[in-house]
């Protein structure tokens, strides 16, 4: 598959959850809790595409999937778009764009504080994801974009904090993030060690 075709295919895949919920709301009607659905779909896929983007580098280094490299940015931006939609649904449909209420929730509710933290980091990473910014920041760009692991951790904590009783989905997502982070740390160590096989 050519590079641009692979990109287009990936973009199409990332649009599927949005298309799914859109079609459902359109054809089946809003249902009992449309806002709940929008919130969950956008939040969960924001996190999932984040995890997928983090899987690209390990897949490249461990499995030799070098063709996957350009997908890291696509998946990362998809994650950002879903998280932005998640925030928009909350600010608009839950908070009615009331600045006072929004600020109060951000300051007083830890899971919202964490979620806003994750969003803010992803916003910085999305803005600096362009070629121009990569050039401008040079070596610092890589350092800056390590923040994605902080954003992922904040997102997982945000997920845990809002659960009433069933922690399974948050645990699964959290474990995947932990494995991805551990893999990166091991890869970094291997790279630094003189016996490492990688150049």
């Amino acid at each position: 598959m050519s590079r641009s075709l692979l990109q287009a295919f990936t973009v199409a895949i990332t649009l599927l959850p949005a298309l799914g919920i859109g079609l459902r709301l359109f054809f089946e009607g809003p249902g009992p809790e449309p806002v709940d659905d929008l919130t969950h779909v956008s939040g969960e896929w924001g996190l999932r595409f984040l995890l997928l983007s983090l899987a690209v580098t390990p897949a490249r280094r461990l499995l030799g999937w070098h063709w996957a490299a350009p997908l890291r940015r696509t998946l990362g931006l998809a994650s950002f778009c879903y998280v932005a939609a998640h925030l928009l649904v909350w600010a608009w449909l839950d908070m009615g764009f009331d600045p006072g209420a929004i600020l109060e929730d951000i300051l007083e509710r830890p899971y919202i504080t964490l979620g806003m933290g994750a969003f803010s980091l992803l916003l910085v990473l999305a803005v600096t994801s362009t070629r121009a910014w990569i050039k401008r920041l040079g070596a610092r760009w890589i350092k800056l974009h390590k923040l994605v692991y902080v954003a992922g951790t904040l997102a997982i904590l945000h997920y845990f904090w809002l659960i009433k009783a069933d922690y399974r989905p948050a645990i699964v997502h959290g474990l995947i993030l932990a494995v991805l982070l551990a893999t990166r740390l091991l890869l970094a160590r291997r790279r630094r060690s003189p016996r490492g096989s990688e150049s």
Partner: peptide, 9 residues
């Protein structure tokens, strides 16, 4: 609160 079926609270 959000009444089931509503978008707004």
């Amino acid at each position: 609160e959000r009444k089931l079926g509503d978008y707004r609270k």
